[in-house]
Nucleic acid binder design. Structure first.
Lengths: 197, 197
DNA sequence: GTTAGCATGTAAGGAGTTACATGATTTT
DNA sequence: AAAATCATGTAACTCCTTACATGCTAAC
């Protein structure tokens, strides 16, 4: 998780730890901020694994000509690191459909092949739809026995799952529209998602 | 988390581990299923802490008069356990607003005091609204620079947060309606939530 | 010159998972 | 008698957090 995200950020540009943490927390749009207590050890492990190296070429410690005892450490991807990142990007196996993993995958979708994108979206859709169906079923069975709060919780959960499925359907439709125009399939618009009802 | 949920389930009725796991996963309406690898050690810890005891009074191992070597172990709350559960129910401090904790709290809201319910809902609302505002701000700043997928992720996250806030507002309004009718406040309907804009 | 923010790190521990191992009971 | 499901448990591990400790740089 953290590793994957770090690889993706360093694939854009070399960076030091503090900067990585800020980007993880803030902009990426939904990814949470990891603590330094997990970030720095992770950077160590990744360096030991040969995926990243320290580099002197980063931005120098601002102003002051003096070399500080403890300068910031800028990391960049190695060739192996790039390869490993590419492998992770190409992975469309069930673990990529898990909540956290999926978000990271999506954040790096621009660098993911169209084929893998589609498979991840479909896998994710299946998973969320299954959960939704399970929720719907158990709500249907138990609705009367549930107190107001438990029912509210269950209904809100169900609705969220439902919304996510519809959102995924839109993304999938978008992918298929792109693919069919790229692959020049004669005259087929975006096909409707085969709902397994 | 697990401890809290187990206490709540055992407060209803004595149960053995397998049963606990089923209830956690299925019905409760949004709570996830924990693995046995965490459930059984947790039961041990709780027993050592004096919150639960094994009991012979549970349902006997079905059919067969013979005492099996390895019978199922039915647990029930001790007096200390009940007290501890009550303490947890009454806790409305920030940690209760975290995603997982909040769900468990809500599932046991029927046994929570009206005052604590309101404080937890308001705390949760503040937390989610803050996250939403942060998302909205960084989306506003960066929307143009974001690729399609990152933007979709961010927008879906924002919308989910927004929906949760509105849901919480409804729950809060419901609480206040109850309170004001119970406390017989002269003629005030459910007051609108003081949006901190 | 002190506070705030930038920057890096370690140690201990929390809260769970997976994989494995075993055995009892019920159903087919 | 085989397969499914009920039932309990352990060992090793993953992944992250909190709390602490340190020091540099910029701003007030």
């Amino acid at each position: 998780m953290l590793e994957f995200a770090v690889l993706g950020l360093l694939a854009d540009a070399p960076m030091h730890g503090y900067e990585l943490r800020k980007r993880l927390g803030g902009l990426l749009g939904g990814l949470r901020a990891f603590s330094y207590g997990s970030l720095y050890p992770t950077l160590r492990r990744m360096q030991a694994a040969g995926w990243i190296t320290e580099t002197g070429s980063g931005v120098a410690p601002p102003t002051s000509g003096l070399r500080p005892k403890r300068a910031r450490v800028v990391y960049q991807l190695t060739a192996q690191g790039k390869e490993h990142f590419a492998d992770l990007l190409a992975d469309a196996s069930p673990p990529s459909w898990a909540d956290d993993r999926f978000d990271v995958h999506l954040a790096f979708f621009a660098r993911t092949s169209a084929e893998v994108r589609l498979r991840i979206l479909q896998g994710r859709r299946r998973r969320v739809a299954d959960r939704r169906d399970g929720m719907r079923a158990s709500l249907g069975r138990a609705r009367e026995r549930l107190d107001r709060y438990t029912r509210e919780l269950a209904e809100h959960g169900l609705e969220s799952a439902d919304r996510e499925v519809r959102w995924l359907d839109e993304l999938i439709a978008g992918e298929q529209a792109d693919t069919s125009s790229e692959a020049a399939r004669p005259a087929m618009g975006p096909q409707p998602q085969p709902h397994h009802p």
